[in-house]
Every structure is written in C-alpha cells, then in structure tokens.
Design a protein around this nucleic acid. Sequence first.
DNA 1: GACCCGTGGGG
DNA 2: TCCCCAAGGGT
Length: 371
Amino acid sequence: MHECQNANQYAKELLVWYDKHHRPLPWRQNINIYHTWVCEVMSQQTTLAVVVPKFSEFVKQLPTVDDLAVCDEDTLRQLWSGLGYYARARNLKKGAIFIVEHLEGRFPQSCKEWLEIPGCGLYTAAVIASVCFNEKVACVDGNVTRVVSRLLALSRDVWGSSGQSVIRDFVNSIISDERPGDFNQAMMELGATVCRKTKPLCLLCPLRSQCLASEKNCTELCPPQKPRRDAVDVELFALIIWRKATDTIAIVERTKGFLANTVGFPLIPEIEVLEVKKRFKSLKQFQLVELPGTFAHNITHHRISGKALVVQEVEDYWSAAVEDFWQKLGLPQPFYWVASQAIATKLSTSLDKKVFKLFHVSPFGHPNSKL
DNA sequence: GACCCGTGGGG
DNA sequence: TCCCCAAGGGT
C-alpha cells in the first residue's frame, strides 16, 4: 500500500509546481461558486481552448444563478453553441432552477449536496466542493486517472468503476490537508500540460522521483487505452421547408435522440426520404429541390453524411392543412416558422449551420434569390 | 456495466 | 482528408 510519509511529499512537490506553472484561466482569478460550477460543467469532455471564450460570454450574459434560472431557451442555446453535449446546458439550467426554488438561491456547501444537482457527478461535485469550500475530497477525471496510473505503474484497466475507485482512494490518501482545491487542480493541470497522454514531459515533472512508470520507463503503457466503439455510417436528409408567401422556414424542437434539446431543421433518415418526397409531390402547391452537395458531420461514434431537401411552398397550402399534414409526414413536433432572414441567428448546432450553408450558397436555395 | 450524447482542434 | 480526443454524466 501507499505509505503515509510519502503523502505529504506528493502534495508538497505538486503544490510548489502548481503555484509556479499553472495557467491563468479566467475562473481562477478569484473563486466564485457560480463561475466554478459553470466552467466545470462546460469543461466536461471539452478542450479548455474552446471553453475559455465561451465561459466568459456565458457569465457576462448570465452573471448569476438567478439569471440562469430564468433565461430563455434561445439565449441558452446560443451561449452553448459550439460546445456540444447539449444535455449539459439543460441540466445546468435545471440545477439553477432547483437552487433558486428549493435552496432559496443558496448554493450547496458540500460534495454530497452538489451530487444532487443535475449534471453534477462525482467529478464535478468534488471539484466544486474542494475549490470553493476547501473540502478534502479527491476529484478524478481523465487527467488524474492518467497521472495516478503512471505514478503507480498501473497498466491494468483503470477506466471501469473498480479502477476509478482505486484511483480515487489513492488521490484521497495523498490530497493536501491545507489546500485540497489547489491540489485537485494541480493534479489535473499536471495531466494536461506535463503528464500528457502522448509524449509526456517527464523531465519537467515535479513527481518524477516518485513515479513508478517513469522509473520502469513504461509511461506509454499506463494507462491502457479507453475502449472505443466502432464508427457507424448514417445517411440523413435535412428538410428546409420554406413558405414563400411569408418567407418563413420550419424549425423543429428535437426532443430525443441526436441533438436532443436543440432546435433546427427537421432531420429524417435517408430511407424515409422517398416517402416524404412522394407526399409533397402529390400536391401541386410544392416544389422540391435537392440541394447540390453534401455535408459531413460526426456525432459521437456516428459518421453522418447528409443532404438537404428544399421543400418550397409556391402556392398557399400550410395555412389550412398544416397541422394535419405535418403529422401525416411523421415529422418531429413541435415546429414553428422562423423568418428566413432570422434563421441563421436561431440555429445553434454545428449540423444545422452546415445545412444552412448548403442552402445559403445555393442558387436554388438562397432566400434572396428567385427560384 | 454498457451505451448514449457534440464539437473544435491537433496530429 | 481522416482519425483521435478532451476538466463526464445520465439512463
């Protein structure tokens, strides 16, 4: 097992290094519970270079938990645009509402209490509790897992729940008594900048003399690679349903599956396109144009290849039969009409922006061009 | 435990 | 161009 006299040594060396070398991230300037919460949720599975500007804009537009709790969905989506994993934004707002409505706007004070907040798991609750409340609780993310697996030369699986427990127990055994928050951030910072996945900079590492993987020269084997799913190819169509009379375009709220909790163009599997085309073609009020070109987009392990179909209503039809027809088409609901000039500002997902680009550059599709 | 969910940046 | 991946959490 790990000896206690070493525990202080790990923390001591690490904190000396951290004080000297940590990056000046915006949320590190002065500790703010709301800021810490927002930046940690934003940072989940996301690179910090992308997070930093998004974080600043987010807390500028929504400075307090009260602002977040009452913000409109469109604002939230725009602030989250480019970050992905949109459930995080939904949970963040749910958490804000919970804090405002059930905790009288007072933030939870411990790791255990933070675990009750939507979107806060073991990692996030531990970071907030240690950084904001000086709670001595280990936080274990991908960086920390890598650092510890090398310190202990663990080449067996460390990503499953039992492996994560081993990592967490070890970190709890060496965590600083005086500065648990800085210690946790230091472990992550070390993993991000020195104990990197590939080409670790062992010569710069403050823990080198205590690192078994460095000693055995086996950093490449520790930790073992996370298992990954094979990519799956998906073909789909985006529908650009455009009312000429009002110059508006149909936007749907996606409630499940890909891009849940976002709004954008209706998406249908390639295999259903024929049926949809047939239904529109049976009505003289519509003209169909399949835009030239395709767009490529990845969602987790799905490799999406997409095309866009413009469905233009050249004579009035929707005003009378819209609800019924929409339902018969099996398109996502609810939907609403957005002025074509305002479409670009409504879209928040990368996929929708790619679709819009196909539309915008096309002589067949541009709202300002004559069809 | 298995599987789900986005995106931008880097090699 | 293509593949890899990053300060995870929910179901």
